[in-house]
Design a protein around this nucleic acid. Structure first.
Lengths: 347, 347
DNA sequence: CTGTTAGCGCCTTCAG
DNA sequence: CTGAAGGCGCTAACAG
């Protein structure tokens, strides 16, 4: 009675049920051209034999694997794990499974992962974060497997991508402070060499100042690596300035929390002395004191929408546009003062 | 020059290189029985044609897919995403890819995911969290695919599993407070119906009290769902007791942070008035103020070790024992007082 | 060292 | 509504 070992195939089912393989295949695939009686009989045998269709064989024959590849910088990063959740939920909905790969943003590894995924015959590919390089483009060019970028994009929009308007988000956060009457608004951002996140956000901040006739002060800029420690460090140096800023836009929630602690450790009050706005709205933003005001990025939706878009490509459906920008908003909590709570400001 | 569409196969390579499929297969698979000259020629053609081996066909022929299935409660949960990181890193090391599936701890879904993964012919299976049910056991019995449980286990150790000693971890945390001179030690735990986490930890707490002749007080027990809000709630009710506890063991870091905030909101000081110990040591533990003292669970290693163990099973290697218990420790930070900082206590 | 020959388990026309 | 037959792309003996 040890059912281990023996692989039972569609052929076995056919034999026992007294029909052909084709018929079994039809009932397994829900093809309607099968007489109810036959179907019932086959289903019975399948149950009885404990038959389990071999997806690999099926994939070879049908050229569809019902699995999509997901290349992600780091699954242990709260932002990406939330996006991945969105991806997986929609994938499940459309009966796809995902092969997850961490790239750690290493160029070589990214390329190699894409190759591996393609070898595994994924029906589609989701590429998150990271920069899309020439090399990738060349690979994509030579394949029919659809690709959708998430939380990143490529110049001239050569590839479908879903994300938010990074420039505008940083702009909005900065304008919020300007409207609050601030003049000395610091920025703790990411590497400006990063054309997808770091740079556009930086420009958004800068534009906000310019448009409101506030002088841009280089001394108020700090570049971190998006993590807690760098946020703490950056804020500490900002605090040691003769002219301490009264507000700071921090381009990641983790850095923002680090900044908050640096401020608190410095004996200053938030938001009374210094106001802080973070970026992304990951869970920790609502689990620290003071509650972190931040740019609310629809992480889950980013993944969900991207996966949905990918299914359209995989199914050959018409797609209006491959470039989708999801809305963001400012989630104001207690690391900022309510607008209007200070000496009169407009709008 | 549009290489799209045309699928180039091992046969094409063989033809162009003027050798047989077998030879091409050999060089692709690094078989040494190939004359260097031939190998070089074949490699050249592969490059020239842009040949990419079809892993699905290979899987069908070799009965190995080089992919393992991972059933996880929720990838957006910090604990599991960290474990998954460990899994993926080791999987990469052994050239495996992982198919990731969220179960949300739903019994039916778990079963269905295992089935799907088996259909996809994964070489191995990792089942995280969640309870292993009769149904699962029955499936495992009828397959040769090795399974390793992570952060969960099954009665009588019928399946290989890697985790920590839950009972002891809770015991240790409790004892720490006892040694600190506490008598009123509260517990914020998880459902006692959970025989893998909730119950054993609860018992560990209880044993610690018993062994140190401290009366168990039911009023000091709260059951949460491991999340921030429930920790806040639970602590709030504890704070409203006439006899407020002086310390609290919280069985998840998120609940612990919630508890911390409830205490702070109540105007009490940590650790002066109340000491708090969390559980797991996820990133947030070191990103809140006061820094959370907690049970350090080697999350990454849990995943890494489990994956490593799985490779042994998949490769038919000898395995000493399938039951591995990784060490935990108390990570003392600032939500607890240093031992000995209060009226003398022994060791 | 290299080629031949069977399949792996299933889908998919094409007949009937 | 059902069966027969030919692959899908590759691996794995087995010869030579």
């Amino acid at each position: 009675m040890d059912k281990k070992k023996e692989t039972i195939t569609i052929y076995d089912v056919a034999r026992v049920a007294g029909v052909s393989m084709a018929t079994v295949s039809r009932v397994v695939n829900g093809n309607s051209n099968v007489k109810p009686a036959t179907r019932k009989k086959v289903l019975g045998v399948i149950e009885q034999l404990g038959y389990r269709p071999n997806a690999v064989a099926r994939g070879l024959a049908s050229k569809k694997t019902k699995t999509v590849g997901v290349v992600i910088p780091d699954i242990s990063n709260a932002f990406y794990s939330e996006v991945t959740r969105g991806i997986e939920d929609i994938a499940t909905m459309y009966r796809y499974n995902i092969i997850l790969c961490n790239s750690d943003l290493q160029q070589e590894r990214e390329t190699q992962l894409i190759e591996t995924l393609l070898e595994k015959q994924v029906d589609g590919l989701l590429f998150l974060g990271g920069n899309v390089r020439e090399e990738h483009l060349r690979i994509y060019e030579h394949t029919n497997v659809p690709v959708v970028l998430v939380a990143t994009k490529v110049e001239d929009n050569a590839l479908p991508a879903v994300g938010i308007d990074q420039h505008e988000a940083a702009y909005d956060a900065t304008v919020h402070f300007i409207q609050g009457g601030h003049k000395k608004i610091a920025l703790i951002g990411g590497p400006l060499t990063d054309l997808v996140k770091g740079y556009p956000r930086y420009i958004g901040y800068k534009h906000a100042l310019e448009e409101h006739q506030i002088e841009f002060d280089e001394h108020l800029i700090r570049i971190g690596d998006y993590r807690y420690d760098s946020g703490y460090q950056a804020m500490s140096t900002l605090l040691s300035l003769t002219d301490v800023p009264t507000s700071v836009v921090v381009l990641s929630d983790e850095m923002a929390v680090g900044a908050i602690h640096a401020i608190l450790d410095n004996g200053k009050k938030i938001p009374e002395d210094i106001e802080v706005i973070g970026y992304n709205n990951i869970p920790i933003a609502s689990q620290v004191r003071p509650l972190l005001s931040t740019v609310d990025v629809p992480m889950y939706d980013l993944g969900a929408v991207a996966m949905r878009l990918l299914t359209k490509y995989m199914h050959g459906e018409e797609v209006q546009t491959g470039q989708v920008t999801l809305p963001h908003s400012l989630k104001l909590r207690s690391s900022t003062r309510p607008l209007g709570s200070i000496e009169g400001e407009q709008s």
